[in-house]
Simulated scan of single mutants.
Amino acid sequence: MATNVAMHPAAPAHLPGFITAPGETDPLFVGSVIFLIILVMGLGSLYFWLHSIPERLAHGTGKIQFQLVGVLALLALFTHNNLFWVFALMLALIPIPDFWTPLASMADSLASMVRPRRPPPDDAVDPALQPMLPLEHGTMHEAPHGEATAAEGHKP
């Protein structure tokens, strides 16, 4: 769209290509705006990608450690305090030993030892497997059915 616009008397005879006539679209401005939008989106993505490094490193760790790293990284993101991010990165890189699993296993074993045992039904007891009671001279004899042995102190 060429218009017959009179040149200003102070304007040089040849104008550079980035200067547009009044009322026309400025391609340099449009290109600059598109470039800046892409640049801001790219830098924002890079910022969030860098901010998620501690969480990605802690992904294979235990649940509690992963959650602590996530909270610290989120605090660093919202408060713009880099110290939280450094702590999250250090916590993600240091493996924390699992103390809970052995303790839970010990507690389960102790609980199973404390549970009272029910005696088997009378028809399920094999007489050949009856406990032996010691005699005075070191020989053994079979305990009568239903009686406790000296070592056990309770009924089978």
Rank of each mutant, 00 (worst) to 15 (best):
T3F: 11
V5D: 14
G17S: 12
G17Y: 03
F18S: 07
P22Y: 11
G23E: 09
L28A: 13
L28S: 02
F29S: 03
G31E: 11
L36H: 02
I38C: 08
L39D: 03
L39H: 00
L46Y: 15
F48C: 00
W49E: 04
I53T: 13
E55F: 02
E55H: 03
R56M: 08
L57K: 14
H59R: 15
H59T: 08
H59I: 12
G62L: 10
Q65I: 00
Q65A: 10
L68Q: 06
L68A: 13
V69S: 05
L72W: 10
A76W: 14
T79Q: 00
N81T: 12
N81K: 00
W85D: 05
V86T: 09
F87P: 01
L89Q: 07
L89N: 08
P102E: 07
A104S: 09
S105K: 14
A107Y: 01
S112H: 02
V114R: 13
R115A: 14
P116D: 09
R118N: 05
P119Q: 14
A124Y: 08
A124V: 15
D126L: 08
P127F: 01
A128K: 05
Q130R: 15
Q130S: 07
Q130D: 07
P134I: 02
E136C: 01
M140H: 04
M140C: 00
M140L: 15
A143M: 14
T149W: 07
A150Y: 01
P156S: 06
